[in-house]
């Protein structure tokens, strides 16, 4: 349940491009409905498991992935929070 990251995108094309790269890198990820807690902008986002936020930033920047925002999921008291990373 730890180290889960959600990435939002400016367009479907960017999300699909990211998906292609993540597949190639064999990351553990899935396309999910964008959590309403973080954004009402897009229908879907990418959830990546077992990755550090720094690694995700590096992968996105190295592969010129056009993301909107990157969030770390934090679990507490039975609930969860999405912490935005800059």
């Amino acid at each position: 349940m730890n180290r889960q990251i959600v990435i939002t995108f400016n367009s479907t094309h960017s999300a699909m491009a990211a998906e292609d790269i993540f597949k190639e890198l064999k990351l553990d990820f899935e396309l999910i409905p964008t959590p309403r807690e973080i954004s009402a902008e897009c229908g879907f986002a990418l959830l990546v498991r077992e990755m550090d936020i720094a690694e995700i930033f590096l992968i996105c920047n190295q592969n010129q992935i056009k993301y909107d925002n990157i969030y770390q999921i934090k679990y507490n008291d039975g609930g969860k929070e999405y912490e935005k990373s800059d």
């Binding site: 367009s11 479907t12 954004s39 897009c42």
Partner: peptide, 8 residues
């Protein structure tokens, strides 16, 4: 509609 930036 584009599916993106849907709150705008």
């Amino acid at each position: 509609g584009t599916g993106s930036r849907s709150s705008s």
